[in-house]
Lab assay of single mutants.
Amino acid sequence: NQASVVANQLIPINTALTLVAMRSEVVTPVGIPAEDIPRLVSMQVNRAVPLGTTLMPDMVKGYA
């Protein structure tokens, strides 16, 4: 099972992602792969992401 990126805190809309804001977890459905965490740092989310939410490619500006 592949680990996905999960919000480690509430991430407000247009907030730049940080290492502290993300964690890796095996979840269903699978979201952005955990190995992409370094690439996600400083990218912005295009919606509010609640704690525990799996990050999907369409939630991160410039990711997809």
Rank of each mutant, 00 (worst) to 15 (best):
N1A: 15
N1L: 15
N1Y: 14
Q2K: 14
Q2V: 14
Q2R: 15
Q2D: 08
A3F: 12
A3G: 09
A3N: 08
A3H: 10
A3M: 11
A3E: 09
S4D: 02
S4E: 01
S4W: 01
S4K: 00
V5Y: 01
V5R: 00
V5N: 00
V5W: 00
V5L: 02
V5C: 06
V5P: 00
V6E: 02
V6R: 01
V6A: 00
V6D: 04
V6C: 05
V6W: 03
A7E: 02
A7C: 05
A7I: 06
A7N: 03
A7T: 10
A7D: 00
N8C: 07
N8Y: 04
N8V: 07
N8D: 08
N8G: 09
N8H: 06
N8K: 07
Q9T: 10
Q9R: 13
Q9N: 08
Q9S: 08
Q9L: 11
Q9C: 07
Q9K: 13
L10C: 10
L10N: 15
L10E: 15
L10A: 13
I11Q: 02
I11P: 01
I11S: 00
I11A: 02
I11N: 00
I11E: 01
I11W: 01
I11R: 00
P12H: 09
P12C: 07
P12W: 05
P12S: 08
P12D: 10
I13C: 09
I13D: 10
I13V: 13
I13Y: 10
I13Q: 12
I13W: 08
N14W: 15
N14M: 08
N14G: 13
N14H: 11
N14Q: 06
T15C: 09
T15Q: 10
T15D: 07
A16N: 10
A16D: 07
L17H: 02
L17W: 00
T18K: 09
T18V: 07
T18W: 05
T18M: 07
T18E: 09
T18P: 03
T18Y: 06
L19Q: 07
L19P: 07
L19A: 08
V20H: 13
V20W: 14
V20Q: 15
A21H: 15
A21Y: 14
A21K: 09
A21Q: 13
M22K: 00
M22N: 00
M22S: 02
M22V: 06
R23S: 07
R23P: 02
R23H: 04
R23N: 06
R23Y: 05
S24P: 13
S24H: 07
S24T: 10
S24R: 12
E25K: 10
E25D: 10
E25P: 00
E25F: 06
V26M: 11
V26W: 12
V26A: 08
V26Q: 09
V27L: 03
V27W: 03
V27P: 00
V27N: 03
T28C: 08
T28Q: 13
T28Y: 14
T28R: 10
T28E: 12
T28K: 10
P29K: 04
P29G: 02
P29Y: 03
P29W: 05
P29N: 03
V30F: 12
V30Y: 12
V30A: 14
V30I: 13
V30W: 14
G31S: 00
G31R: 01
G31T: 02
G31V: 02
G31A: 04
G31P: 01
G31W: 03
I32D: 00
I32H: 02
I32V: 07
I32P: 01
P33D: 05
P33L: 08
P33R: 09
A34W: 06
A34K: 05
A34S: 10
A34H: 06
A34T: 05
A34Y: 06
A34L: 03
E35K: 14
E35M: 11
E35A: 15
E35C: 07
E35T: 14
E35S: 14
D36R: 09
D36S: 09
D36C: 10
D36V: 08
D36N: 11
D36Q: 12
I37T: 05
I37E: 01
I37S: 01
I37V: 04
I37R: 06
P38M: 11
P38Y: 13
P38Q: 11
R39M: 15
R39Y: 12
R39L: 13
R39N: 10
R39T: 10
L40K: 04
L40E: 01
L40W: 02
L40N: 02
L40F: 00
L40A: 01
L40P: 02
L40Y: 02
V41N: 04
V41K: 02
V41C: 06
V41T: 05
S42T: 13
S42V: 04
M43W: 06
M43C: 06
Q44Y: 13
Q44W: 10
Q44T: 14
Q44G: 05
Q44P: 07
Q44A: 10
V45D: 04
V45C: 05
V45F: 00
V45H: 01
V45S: 03
N46K: 10
N46T: 14
N46Q: 08
N46Y: 07
R47M: 11
R47W: 06
R47I: 13
A48R: 14
A48Y: 10
V49N: 04
V49L: 08
P50A: 13
P50D: 12
L51E: 15
L51S: 14
L51T: 14
L51A: 15
L51H: 11
G52T: 01
G52I: 03
G52C: 04
G52P: 02
G52V: 01
G52H: 07
G52S: 05
G52L: 05
G52W: 03
G52A: 04
T53E: 11
T53S: 14
T53C: 09
T53M: 12
T53Q: 10
T54A: 05
T54H: 03
T54W: 03
T54V: 10
L55E: 02
L55H: 01
L55K: 00
L55V: 08
M56E: 06
M56G: 04
M56A: 05
M56F: 11
M56S: 06
P57G: 07
P57M: 06
P57T: 05
D58C: 09
D58I: 09
D58A: 13
D58W: 15
D58Y: 15
D58V: 08
D58E: 12
M59G: 01
M59A: 06
M59I: 04
V60L: 08
V60H: 02
V60C: 04
K61T: 14
K61A: 10
K61P: 10
K61Y: 14
K61V: 15
K61C: 09
G62L: 07
G62N: 12
G62F: 08
G62M: 08
G62T: 05
G62A: 08
G62W: 07
Y63V: 01
Y63S: 05
Y63E: 03
Y63D: 03
Y63N: 04
Y63A: 02
A64V: 15
A64Y: 12
A64P: 12
A64M: 15
A64T: 15
A64Q: 14
